[in-house]
Design a protein around this nucleic acid. Sequence first.
DNA 1: TCTGTATTTTACCGTTCGGTATATAAAAAG
DNA 2: CTTTTTATATACCGAACGGTAAAATACAGA
Lengths: 191, 191
Amino acid sequence: MENRERIMQCAEELFYSRGYDAAGVQEIVERAGVTKPTLYYYFGSKRGLLKAILDTKFERLIPELESVVNRPGDIRSKLYELGGVYYDFFREEYRFYMLLMALFYSARENEAYQTARPYYEHFYETVIRVFKDCSWELGNMNGRQKQFAISYIGAVNQYLVLSFDKKTGKSTVSREQVRGIVDQFMYGIFS
Amino acid sequence: MENRERIMQCAEELFYSRGYDAAGVQEIVERAGVTKPTLYYYFGSKRGLLKAILDTKFERLIPELESVVNRPGDIRSKLYELGGVYYDFFREEYRFYMLLMALFYSARENEAYQTARPYYEHFYETVIRVFKDCSWELGNMNGRQKQFAISYIGAVNQYLVLSFDKKTGKSTVSREQVRGIVDQFMYGIFS
DNA sequence: TCTGTATTTTACCGTTCGGTATATAAAAAG
DNA sequence: CTTTTTATATACCGAACGGTAAAATACAGA
């Protein structure tokens, strides 16, 4: 099982730094210190390898998101906590996070996008549910739950991604600053 | 000059639909009805072709952005107009817009990202300047101009991209709804 | 010790990749 | 009418692509 994990780790690194299409299977196995058939033994295809990486990481992220969403509380505290989950996940798994963003924005026909798509959908649905569950607080929102979810994710993501220093490999923002973004999202720029 | 333009057009389409790395030079020239040396005669390399596409489109977008930024007005009207420019550009050049997003989120080591990077920087600086020029209205903002620019672009982009129906190739939002996003950005979700 | 299974290797597949040397048309300049 | 420049095609390059057949190795349990 050691080789399997090392392959996934090296692949994640290379997908992140070169991009999924530009990263070659040959280079992945070289870094992992194995040969190609070993990779194909475990994952079946390059796409299968990507899928395995996505599965592993989401297996950790999804329950964290769910626990925030299902916990009782007002919209403010939920969005804070949600931002916190993003922030922590981003700090610990920034390579994967950046890879995920790249996949999300890659072309619709592209194999990588199609592989990653189901994961986004689950992800988005979770955030939309936050707004739906808080209709007691926000009114009927005129069907704007989805819009709220989109711009919330857009603002937070953009902020995390832009504040990432790829030289040091670290985020330059604090958890507090992410709270600031959430505040701005809720109360506007004059707050 | 006809072939040159047709190559660029076909390349834009393929870069959009398959992704820059996944789109092959061979396929581009086949669609354009020419051969490879013709492409290399005009653009020198695949990267040069991408650069030419970026140049052409930004040559149109940048002046529009500049005119909005340089016009006098309050932050509200400027952000409205800026959103309008995005919206129009997105409707008319959605393939290019989506391609641009994909390039922006692609890996830092990647050739495509490095080619597109200078264009983003110019673009971001323009939006940051909107907030800087309105410090009379927003106070000193505690150095949050950049944060504002980032989350503004993040929210608007995410909204436009998400509302794009790739089956019909059209945006499902109106100019009004983009104004709604700008309102939300300025006054929060309770507005 | 033998046998079966899980794992990894060597050596290779055909295809496509980005890119080019060279010849050839077409058109403008002398 | 020649010469030069611009533009396009034929035919090819070596390298890398994703992927695989088949053999060898490692390691169980009987």
